[in-house]
Design a protein around this nucleic acid. Structure first.
Length: 805
RNA sequence: GCCGAUGUGGUGAAACUGGCAAACACGCACGACUCAAAAUCGUGUGCCGCAAGGCUUGUGGGUUCAAGUCCCACCAUCGGCACCA
C-alpha cells in the first residue's frame, strides 16, 4: 500500500527546504504567469472549491514548468472583510488577530495538498506593507481625476445604525438583523470606472476568455447608442432632455416622463395645478425602499403635472408631462419620451392612465397597421410626416441629422455601468488616504507618509451616525492639512474589500519592493497573467474592477500591458453528496483535511479533477473517490513489477506516445478529467505487462507528476536510485507522431449506413482491397444478396459504406 | 421578460474536421480468495429479444451514403441580469 501520510509529508518538506518552486526573473527563459484567485481566509477554513481552483492552477503550472517555462505561481490572502469585523465587534478583539489565525490555518491546509506556490511571494492585503500600495494606487486615481466624492444614497440599517455594503443586503434586508434597509444620503467616494466603459468593452474582443464571461461583461457595461432630445416646456425657459435609442418612434410620443427624483419639477411648481398631489407622490416614492420600487414590476404608478406641457420638437405637438417611478433617475437624463405603441412599459402605463397610443412603426411596408398590441421591433415608419416609409434604421439617421441641425438633438451613448461606490463606513479596510481641509478641499496624504496605517481602536461598533468607527479617534482624525498646514480632518471611510484584490496580481511580481508597487523590469517580464483560474462569482465585479485598475495604471505608464489577464478559466461548483450546496446548515460540508487524512492529497487532487469537466458543477461522491484511491494504489504497485532495459515493443510505444500527446493537449485545454482517463488506460496496459521498460516507466511518472506530485516524486526516486533531483526538474516527455500511427486498424463495414461487420487491415489500406475483402464476408454477403450496389463510400482507416438498392 | 449554458446508460461522463455512440470510472451482478465479512483480483453490464435481429444521444421535422455533431421549430433544467427607455 502507498504510505501517503509519510511520503506526502516527506516531499512537502523537500520542496520547502529546497525552494523547488522559487522563481526569479530569468531572461534566458520564457516566463509563464499562472494565477488563481486568492482566498478570503474565513474561519471555516479551506473549502473543496478552493482546492479545485488551486489544484488546477498547480497542474497547469507544473506542466508549464516541465515544458521549460519560468513559472510564476503564488498565493496570498484577501483578508479585509466583514466576517473578521463582525467577529471583532462581538468578541471585542482586534479583527487582525482573528485574521492572522485564519491565515495560518489556510496556509497549513493549502500546503497540505502540495501545490507548487512560491511561498516567498505570499501577500496579505491587510499588511500595511501591502496596503501602502493599495493607497498609493488610490492616490494615483485621485490625481487622474478618477476618484471623486459625491452625495449618494447608501444602504442604511436603522437597527444596526450602520451603512451596509451591497453585499450585506439580502432581499432588501440587513444580513445581520434582518431589518428592512433604508436609503440614506451621504457623501461618498466613487471611482470613475465609467470613463473606461468603452475600453473595457472594446478590449474584451482580444481576450482568450470563455464567450459567456465576455457576454456577461458586455451586458453589465450595457452600452446603448441613441440620442438626447430637448423638449421645450410651454411657458418656461427650461427644457426636458430625454434619452432614447428609438428616435424613429418620436411621432408616436404621447407624453414625457420624469423620474420622481428629477429636480426640474420644482422649477415648474408655479404652474402645476395639482401641486399637492404631485408632492404627495414624490414623498410616497421617497419612502419606498428599493425593494418595493423594483418589486412593483407589474404596477406602475405616476402622476400627471397638470397645467404644464412639453413640446415635441419634431411636430410641435403639446404632450403632457408625468412623474413616474418606472423611470430611473440614475440612467440617462432621468427623463424619457413615452411611445406607448412601441414600448412595453409605456404601453402598460398608457393603458392604466388612458393615454394616447399612436402607432408609428409598422411591421410591413404598408401604411395600414391595425395591430392593437405593442410592437417593439424595428419596422417601417408610418404617420411620421416626411419620414413615413423609411425603415427604422434610416429614420434614426435622418432624424438625428435634422435634429442636430436645429439644435434639439444630440447623439449620445449611455452605459448601464455606474461609477464604483468606493467608501465603506467600516473599520476593517484600507483607510482612504485623504485629508479634508476646509480651505484646500480634499488633499492627498503625501506619498512618503504612506502607508496610512489603520489605527488601533477600542470599539469596532459603528458610531451610529453613518460614519466609520475611525471617526471616533480624535487623535487620528485631527491632522494638519498637508498643503496649507491648517487644522483639518482625515477621511474616515475605508476602502471596500474589492480594493486589495484589484491589483494583487501586480504585487506577486515584486512583493518585497519597498520603493515601488513593483519594479518596471519585473512587471515587464511577468505581465500579463497568462492564465487566471477562479470561480464564476467573479465574472463581472472583480474581473471588471481589476481590469479597470490595470488600465488606469497602464495609462499612467506604470504597468506595461493594458489587459491584465490573457486567458481566464472558471470552475464549476462542487456540490455535496446530497446534491445540495455545501453548507454548515445542512451539515454536508466536505473538509479537505478529512479527505487528506483518509486518502492523501494526491487522491483528493485527482478525484476533484476527475469529477467531470472542469467548468461543470458536480456532486461529491464517496464511492467515486474510492475508485481514485484504487487508481493511485495501482500505480504504486507498478513498483512490484520487474523493471528492464530491453527495448519496449511497438504496442507499448504506441500507447505511450498516444498518452503523451493526449495528456499534454488535455492539460492545455483544461480537460483534466480526460487526461486522467488516458493515464488510467496506460496504467491498465502497463499493469498487464510482465515487465516494464524503465524508460517507459519514467515517462509515465512524468505524465502523472502534475496530478500526483508526491507519488510521482517518490516513485521516481525509487526507480532511479542514481538521481537525487526533483522529478519537476526534468522536462516533459515529447511524443513521436510516427509511433502514434496504428499498424493495424479496424474498418467498419456498413451497408446503407448500418454497421454489419468489421475488418482488421493494415494502416492506410486502399479501397479496392478492403472492398474485395468485405465482399467475401458471410455477414456482408447476406445483406448484398439480390441487391444492386449503387455507391461505395470509403473513408480511409475508418469505414466502408456500401449503398445498395 | 431578456441573455447565457446544458440535455447521451442505473450514475459521473467520452466521442478529433459529420464517419463503428457509450472510452475511462462509479455502481451493480456473478465468480475467486475467506469460517465469514471488508479489502483485493477476475468476468459481465445501453435497452428489447431465446435467437436472427431491432431500437437508442430531450421532442418533432430537415439536409446527407452517413447526424450526438449541421439547419429549422419546440420542450425541460440550471445560472446571470432584470423597468437601463
Amino acid at each position: 500500500m502507498y504510505d501517503y501520510k509519510n511520503i506526502e509529508k516527506k516531499w512537502q518538506k523537500y520542496w520547502e527546504d529546497n525552494k523547488t518552486y522559487k522563481v526569479e526573473i530569468d531572461k534566458n527563459k520564457k516566463k509563464f504567469y499562472s494565477l488563481v484567485e486568492f482566498p478570503y481566509p474565513s474561519g471555516a477554513g479551506v473549502h473543496v472549491g478552493h482546492v479545485k481552483g488551486q489544484t488546477a492552477v498547480d497542474i497547469f503550472s507544473r506542466f508549464k514548468r516541465m515544458n521549460g517555462y519560468n513559472v510564476l505561481n503564488a498565493m496570498g490572502w484577501d483578508a479585509f472583510g466583514l466576517p473578521a469585523e463582525n467577529f471583532a465587534i462581538k468578541n471585542k478583539k482586534h479583527p487582525g488577530d482573528f485574521t492572522k489565525k485564519n491565515i495560518e490555518n489556510f496556509r497549513r491546509q493549502i500546503k497540505s495538498f502540495g501545490p507548487s506556490f512560491d511561498w516567498d511571494r505570499e501577500i496579505d492585503t491587510t499588511d500595511p506593507k501591502y496596503y501602502k500600495w493599495t493607497q498609493w494606487i488610490f492616490l494615483k486615481l485621485f490625481e487622474m481625476g478618477l476618484a471623486y466624492e459625491k452625495d449618494a444614497p447608501i444602504n442604511w440599517c436603522p437597527s444596526c445604525k450602520t451603512g451596509l455594503a451591497n453585499e450585506e443586503v439580502l432581499d432588501g434586508k440587513c444580513e445581520r438583523c434582518e431589518s428592512v434597509v433604508e436609503q440614506k444620503n451621504m457623501k461618498q467616494w466613487f471611482l470613475k470606472i465609467t470613463d473606461y466603459a468603452e475600453k473595457l468593452l472594446a478590449d474584451l474582443d482580444d481576450l482568450d476568455w470563455p464567450e459567456y464571461i465576455k457576454t456577461s461583461q458586455k451586458n453589465w457595461i450595457g452600452k446603448s447608442e441613441g440620442a438626447e432630445i430637448d423638449f421645450e416646456i410651454d411657458g418656461f425657459s427650461e427644457k426636458i432632455k430625454v434619452f432614447t435609442t428609438r428616435i424613429d418612434t418620436i411621432f408616436g410620443c404621447s407624453y414625457v416622463v420624469l423620474a420622481p427624483e428629477n429636480k426640474l419639477v420644482l422649477k415648474l411648481k408655479a404652474k402645476i395645478k395639482n401641486w399637492q398631489e404631485v408632492q404627495n407622490y414624490i414623498n410616497e416614492i421617497k419612502n419606498k425602499t428599493d425593494l418595493e420600487r423594483t418589486d412593483l414590476n407589474k404596477n406602475k404608478s405616476g402622476v400627471c403635472l397638470e397645467g404644464v406641457w412639453a413640446i415635441n420638437p419634431f411636430n410641435k405637438e403639446r404632450v403632457s408631462i408625468f412623474l413616474a417611478d418606472y423611470v430611473l433617475a440614475s440612467y440617462g437624463t432621468g427623463a424619457v419620451m413615452a411611445v406607448p405603441a412601441h414600448d412595453e412599459r409605456d404601453f402598460e402605463f398608457a393603458k392604466k392612465y388612458n393615454l394616447d397610443i399612436k402607432r408609428v412603426i409598422a411591421k410591413e411596408n404598408s401604411s395600414n397597421d391595425n395591430n392593437e398590441e405593442c410592437y417593439v421591433d424595428d419596422g417601417f415608419l408610418i404617420n411620421s410626416e416626411k419620414f413615413s416609409g423609411l425603415t427604422s434604421f434610416q429614420a434614426r439617421e435622418k432624424m438625428i441629422i435634422e435634429g442636430q441641425k436645429n439644435n434639439f438633438v444630440e447623439k449620445k451613448i449611455n452605459y448601464k455601468l455606474r461609477d464604483w461606490l468606493f467608501s465603506r463606513q467600516r473599520y476593517w479596510g484600507e483607510p482612504i488616504p485623504i485629508v479634508k481641509c476646509s480651505k484646500c478641499g480634499n488633499v492627498p496624504v503625501p506619498e512618503e507618509e504612506l502607508p496610512l496605517v489603520l489605527p488601533e481602536i477600542e470599539n469596532y461598533e459603528p458610531s451610529g451616525t453613518g460614519e466609520s468607527p475611525l471617526a471616533k479617534i480624535d487623535s487620528w482624525v485631527n491632522v494638519k492639512c498637508p498643503k496649507c498646514g491648517q487644522l483639518a480632518k482625515r477621511e474616515t471611510n475605508t476602502m471596500p474589500q474589492w480594493a486589495g484584490s484589484s491589483w494583487y496580481f501586480l504585487r506577486y511580481i515584486d512583493p518585497h519592493n519597498e520603493k515601488k508597487m513593483a519594479s518596471e523590469e519585473s512587471l515587464k517580464y511577468f505581465m500579463p497573467v497568462d492564465i487566471y483560474f477562479g470561480g464564476a462569482e467573479h465574472t463581472t465585479v472583480h474581473l471588471l474592477y481589476s481590469r479597470f485598475w490595470n488600465k488606469a495604471l497602464y495609462d499612467q505608464g506604470i504597468v506595461p500591458v493594458s489587459e491584465p489577464y490573457k486567458r481566464r478559466v472558471q470552475h464549476g461548483l462542487i456540490l455535496a453528496e446530497d446534491g445540495r450546496k455545501m453548507s454548515k446548515r445542512w451539515g454536508n460540508v466536505i473538509n479537505p483535511d478529512d479527505v487528506i487524512e483518509s486518502y492523501g492529497a494526491d487522491v483528493m487532487r485527482v478525484y476533484i479533477m476527475f469529477m467531470g469537466p472542469y467548468g461543470d458543477t458536480s456532486a461529491w461522491s464517496t464511492s467515486a473517490i474510492n475508485g481514485i484511491n484504487r487508481f493511485v494504489n495501482k500505480i504504486w504497485s507498478l513498483l512490484e513489477k520487474e523493471v528492464c532495459d530491453e527495448l519496449a515493443d511497438k504496442e507499448t510505444l504506441n500507447i505511450l506516445h498516444k498518452t503523451i500527446k493526449k495528456v499534454g493537449e488535455d492539460i492545455e485545454n483544461i480537460s483534466f478529467h480526460t487526461a486522467i482517463s488516458q493515464l488510467m488506460i496506460l496504467l491498465n496496459y502497463l499493469s498487464s505487462l510482465e515487465k516494464i521498460n524503465k524508460e517507459v516507466f519514467n515517462v509515465y511518472l512524468k505524465l502523472l507528476a502534475p496530478f500526483t506530485p508526491h507519488l510521482s516524486e517518490e516513485m521516481y526516486q525509487r526507480l532511479n536510485s542514481d538521481v537525487n533531483q526533483s522529478i519537476f526538474d526534468f522536462s516533459w516527455p515529447e511524443y513521436d507522431l510516427d509511433l502514434i500511427k496504428d499498424e493495424k486498424v479496424k474498418i467498419a463495414i456498413q451497408i446503407n449506413g448500418k454497421l454489419r461487420d468489421s475488418l482488421e487491415v493494415n494502416f492506410d489500406s486502399e479501397e479496392d482491397f478492403i472492398l474485395s475483402l468485405a465482399k467475401e464476408r458471410e455477414l456482408v454477403q447476406k445483406w448484398l444478396e439480390n441487391k444492386e450496389i449503387v455507391k461505395i463510400i470509403f473513408v480511409k482507416n475508418r469505414l466502408i459504406n456500401i449503398v445498395v438498392k
